[in-house]
Design a protein around this nucleic acid. Structure first.
Length: 1085
RNA sequence: GGGCGCAUAGCUCAGUUGGCUAGAGCGCUUCGUUUACACCGAAGAUGUCCGGGGUUCGAGUCCCUGUGCGCCCACCA
């Protein structure tokens, strides 16, 4: 009893089950593949989706293409590895969470760093889980055992290591430079994170000393330090080099006139004011001409204290006021109202960017490297860095073809981008991300004092060793209105191992008891800093005195003087407990006293005295309503921080970490990433086996953001390329060519489509009809179309399984026993094998898919399966097996689910996912024979098609059976055996006579195929047939005319290649013969 | 301002180094329940390959130029 498949393919029933069996088989992991030791590896890293939400069609397209490549190469016996992962997408993720908490009335600052980051992590985790499920739903065969995250421990190790190496190589530096500053995000932005928006503005023509010049931002006048003109501008020739006092709203200021080519003589009056602190162009002009800068706008986008009465205003407010004041002073010449210009905005929050000088970390892209140590073993493309900069190397790897970009035209924009690259600002003032691996602390005491001390800097993979520990001692009297500064400091310092906070045991403890408690519990040594509040100070000093403790530092927050006693005694506690100040001074290296308020029950002079006695630094903090408000605590915090290593609070640009994605993902734990002898070592089998990767497949929109950054980071860190090829897919747009977006309501959701039409159909719709670098317009009908196709494939197998014995193994086919149609279909599937392999090797996915569709539907289903219903050969079953097995294999990379389900129906041994990719293995002789027979079947096909056509044109009723006479000449032997097929395939012929030669019947429908003449008897409609013949003749005559004129052209005959001319001659002959027989036939009416 | 891409059937798009009587899918028209499939089958219609020059025996394909659309980069002080 043969099994029977359901009538229609229902993807929902199978997909999840199939994916599970794949996962359980372990074959997504190349280590489990049954390949020989010599097998090549084939690696793709998944461009990690941002953990900001869900997948869209662009992701789906990406996954489809990458899965095709991976499955194809896996079937070819390679160690195929597809590494999945997600990206923390620093700014994007943080912004998203900020929006969420905004609805709860919170900001990241009200929550605080720790709580906020907790929220971000929770959000990222949830987002991650959704994304992973979606990736799986798409059928992606990634190795989940190697999943990575750009912010996990291993990647963190890579980030810190590379940062350190680059710092040591002098490629990373910290500098105060003009940056793109977003006042809302409170962070820098990379150049390409800035977008431009056209806005209506005003152009102010202002009187500027001897000049009149045009500006859109009169408020920046407060920061002007120069006026620039073009060197060739005759108008201002004599003024260049001179200095002028310019009247302004805050009085006169002096500017120098400089000549610079960056000035456009055509714009305005040809003279421009130069504000070096708040404009990139101005900054460059200033630098070239040795002019200083004056910053007037702060990080909140507000005017700074050097702006007089405008201080604290936003730039917009200040502009209004300043213009008003300038008008009063007669400094405005005139104002143009209809001025349009582009303003720079933040790509995340659309807030206008304020360029301003800021202390940031940069990667120098122009610095030539010398004597750089590099790992040389295991490298495929050895890159020689000697004397080259990042820019040089990144241009070189593309120019020399070490990395190929598909399509090639993107190389041009890559070059342009790379050539014009400025130093890359890598620090961000956001919280979610890799913190800059740099630590600071105050230098030696001798080098300076207070906050002005020189900072020591430490750059490293791990935090620097820091023996310092803190012991916090509370005052005994803590009232409700007194805030708890120690607890606050504790939290802010956030140090794990070497931190102690000693709390009073009870409200009224005995001093001895307290001291014993502290000595027992706190580890006090020479590196200890004791911080006390109020009466805790007595405790501390008494302890130091009695136990002869030697410590690093004692910090007294507010003097431990008992207010109630108002004693003249300097320090008194429980009467008679005087403190030996000399001993304290001897045992404590540094003592600091904070006096937090002036107007308090505690007299200020007592603190001063105390400080004096202790030879301590006294720091006064401003008067305040309560004890130690947060601002004052900041000052104390700084003082404490100066003693220990504290990490740079900035985080790194997310692309800094994702730039390492190809190699950082090939380590499985932090200890596999090391710096040895000034080189980065990735000590993992995976790195040896799978790097560089073969192809990086991603959207062209992140060529610069990501692909270029990967080339920068990888060539530097490994001395090798990250990937051999870059395949750039287009964007997925809606039906009208618009970007899909929720607000437009034109989103086609991949998961919904998978549910509705099946994942296979969704994948095909994204692959077929799509070419690299070109956007793809998608509509639901297209997906439905491929659903239909999957069903067609299903039914091909349904039919075949029902009627034939399908086995998994290719059985030897006896070429001599084939029918014509057998040979024909073998030829076609062999062509498909070659064509699909070739297309896939060259990233022509669409072409491969179209070929297969054409073969499956229009050749296999429409012809072969129909033909063998009427005529089987001894070999038909074997041939069908051969065709179907290979067909499933060829289709599998594209539509993995339905093919695997069908495969399981005819085979239980081995999964399709690891079956061997088909190859055509036939002798030249066999091939020749097959081609011959296949050509013969093409003739039969022609005959059938022509008969069908003639019937329809003659309006022969479909059901009407006719007789046919075939005058076949030499082809009689060929055609006669095919009579069953000709009759069977919807030609409506019930009787077919084939003769070598004979008299043609009158009044029949005439069909000429080459030298073969076919007459359909008993159905002719004279008028229609005459018209059909005439039309045919007319068309042929035109062709003859064209061909003749071609052939009579001497130039053509002489210059065109021989085979082309020969072909034309052959065609002409055929046309003429056909016309002749058609005319003969026409005359018979 | 600099660069790139696109313009081919009603729609979405293929068209490799020039050899083309210019193709596919969808849609459309006519017909068809032949037991794999109506998510099907048969047949059919539809094109100044954006305009204008040029190179060539030959141009949808190469060059120049114009028009329209889209994108990227730079940025207007």
């Amino acid at each position: 009893m043969k099994k029977e498949l359901p009538k229609a393919y229902e993807p929902q029933k199978y997909e999840d089950k199939i994916y599970k069996t794949w996962e359980e088989s372990g074959f997504f992991n190349p280590d489990n593949l049954d390949v020989d030791d010599q097998a090549e590896s084939y690696t793709i890293v998944l461009p990690p989706p941002n953990v900001t939400g869900t997948l869209h069609m662009g992701h789906a397209a990406m996954l489809a293409v990458e899965d095709i490549l991976i499955r194809y190469n896996r079937m070819q016996g390679k160690r195929a590895l597809w590494v999945p992962g997600t990206d923390h997408a620093a700014i994007a993720t943080q912004t998203k969470v900020e929006k969420i908490i905004k609805e709860e009335g919170e900001t990241r600052h009200t929550l605080g760093r720790d709580k906020f980051l907790k929220r971000v992590r929770a959000f990222a985790q949830e987002s991650h889980d959704t994304i992973v499920n979606q990736v799986k739903k798409m059928g992606s065969s990634c190795d989940w055992s190697r999943e990575a995250y750009t912010l996990d421990e291993t990647r963190h190790q890579a980030v810190n290591s590379v940062f350190k190496l680059m710092y040591d190589d002098g490629l990373i530096y910290r500098g105060k430079r003009i940056v793109n500053w977003c006042p809302r995000c409170h962070s820098t932005l990379a150049d390409d994170e800035v977008e431009y928006r056209e806005e209506d503005a005003k152009l102010y023509w202002i009187k500027y000393g001897p000049f009149v010049l045009a500006t859109a931002r009169p408020e920046t006048k407060l920061g002007d330090t120069a006026v620039a003109v073009h060197p060739k501008d005759k108008r201002y020739k004599d003024m260049v080099g001179k200095e002028y006092d310019i009247p302004g709203v805050l009085g006169e200021f002096r500017v120098k006139v400089v000549a610079d080519r960056a000035v456009d003589m055509e714009f305005g009056s040809g003279a421009i004011k130069v504000t070096p602190a708040h404009s990139f162009v101005d900054n460059e002009i200033a630098e070239r001409n040795g002019v200083g800068m004056r910053q007037i706008i702060d990080e909140d986008g507000k005017m700074m204290e050097n702006c007089g009465k405008y201080q604290g205003m936003t730039t917009t407010e200040a502009r209004k006021e300043i213009v008003k004041d300038m008008k009063k002073m007669g400094l405005i010449d005139h104002i143009e109202d209809d001025y349009k210009h582009n303003i720079a905005v933040c790509y995340r929050c659309d807030t206008p960017i304020e360029p301003l000088p800021s202390l940031q970390w940069f990667i120098d892209v122009n610095k030539p490297l010398r004597g750089r140590k590099q790992k040389t073993e295991n490298r495929k493309q050895k890159i020689d860095w000697e004397g080259k900069s990042i820019k040089d190397v990144c241009l070189e790897v593309i120019k020399e073809g070490k990395i190929k970009i598909v399509p090639k035209r993107f190389e041009k924009s890559y070059f342009h981008w790379m050539e014009n690259l400025r130093d890359w600002c890598i620090s961000r003032q956001i919280w979610y991300g890799h913190q800059v691996p740099v630590w600071y602390r105050a230098g030696n005491r001798e080098q300076g004092t207070g906050n002005n001390r020189d900072k020591e800097i430490y750059v490293g993979v791990e935090p620097p060793e820091d023996k310092t520990n803190f012991v916090f001692l509370h005052g005994f009297y803590r009232t409700r209105e007194v805030k708890d500064p120690l607890n606050w400091l504790n939290q802010k310092l956030a140090r794990k191992d070497n931190f102690w906070e000693i709390l009073p045991k009870s409200e009224k403890p005995k001093l001895k008891e307290q001291m014993n408690y502290v000595i027992e519990n706190a580890k006090i040594n020479e590196d200890t800093i004791i911080v006390t509040h109020s009466l805790g100070g007595i405790l501390a000093m008494k302890m130091i005195e009695e136990h002869d403790l030697k410590i690093k530092k004692l910090v007294l927050l507010s003097s431990p003087i008992i207010p109630k006693t108002k004693s003249k005694e300097l320090i008194g506690y429980n009467k008679g407990n005087q403190i030996d100040f000399e001993k304290i001074k001897k045992n404590v290296k540094e003592i600091v006293v904070f006096q937090p308020y002036e107007d308090h029950v505690l007299p200020l002079e007592e603190n001063e005295k105390l400080a004096k006695f202790l030879d301590a630094k006294l720091i006064k903090v401003e008067d305040s309503a309560s004890h130690f408000n947060e601002d004052e605590n900041q000052e104390i915090l700084e003082e404490l921080k100066n003693n220990i290593w504290t990490q740079d609070e900035d985080t790194l640009d997310t692309w800094f970490s994702s730039g390492m994605w190809t190699f950082s993902t090939l380590a499985s734990s932090p200890d596999q990433i090391k710096i040895e002898d000034g080189k980065l070592v990735i000590d993992s089998e995976d790195f040896k086996n799978f790097h560089p990767t073969q192809v990086l497949e991603t959207g062209y929109d992140i060529l610069f953001f990501w692909v270029a950054r990967m080339i920068i980071m990888t060539t530097y860190a490994t001395g090798d390329i990250p990937f051999e090829d870059v395949y750039l897919h287009g964007l997925v747009l809606d039906n009208k060519g618009k970007k899909m977006s929720k607000s437009k309501g034109n989103v086609i959701d991949p998961l919904t489509m998978c549910e509705k039409y099946g994942t296979d159909a969704t994948r095909l719709s994204l692959v077929i009809g799509s070419t690299p670098g070109h956007d793809l317009r998608l509509n639901e009908e297209k997906i439905a179309g491929y659903r239909n196709f999957a069903n067609k494939l299903w039914n091909i197998f349904r039919y075949a399984i029902k009627n034939y014995e399908l086995k998994i193994k290719n059985e030897k086919i006896d070429i001599n026993k084939l029918s014509l149609v057998d040979a024909w279909i073998i030829k076609r599937i062999d062509d498909a094998i070659n064509e699909v392999s070739n297309s896939l090797d060259n990233y022509k996915f669409s072409q491969a898919g179209e070929w297969l569709r054409e073969f499956t539907w229009n050749e296999l289903a429409d012809w072969y399966l129909e033909a063998i219903k009427f005529k089987k050969s001894q070999e038909t079953e074997k041939v069908l097996n051969y065709v179907l097995i290979n067909l499933l294999k060829l289709w599998h990379p594209f539509i993995p689910f339905v093919t695997e389900v069908l495969w399981n129906n005819i085979n239980s041994e081995k999964q399709l996912i690891i079956s061997e990719w088909p190859k055509v293995e036939k002798s030249a002789e066999d091939k020749k024979q097959i081609i011959e027979q296949s050509n013969s079947f093409n003739l039969i096909k022609d005959i059938i098609t022509n008969i069908r056509n003639a019937r329809v044109v003659n309006k022969v009723e479909p059901g009407k059976k006719v007789k046919a006479l075939v005058i076949a000449g030499k082809k009689k032997e060929l055609i006669e055996p095919q009579a069953d097929i000709i009759k069977g395939l919807r030609t409506g012929i019930e009787e077919l006579e084939v003769v070598k030669s004979g008299t043609k019947p009158d009044k029949a429908i005439f069909i000429s195929v080459g030298e073969i003449e076919i007459y359909l008897i008993g159905a002719v409609d004279e008028e229609k047939e005459k018209k059909r013949l005439k039309d045919l003749i007319e068309r042929l005559r035109q062709l003859i005319k064209m061909t003749e004129s071609k052939l009579s052209d001497k130039n053509f005959v002489e210059r065109a290649p021989e085979p082309i001319v020969e072909k034309e001659r052959g065609r002409l002959k055929e046309f003429k013969e056909e016309v002749k027989s058609l005319e003969k036939q026409l005359k018979s009416f």
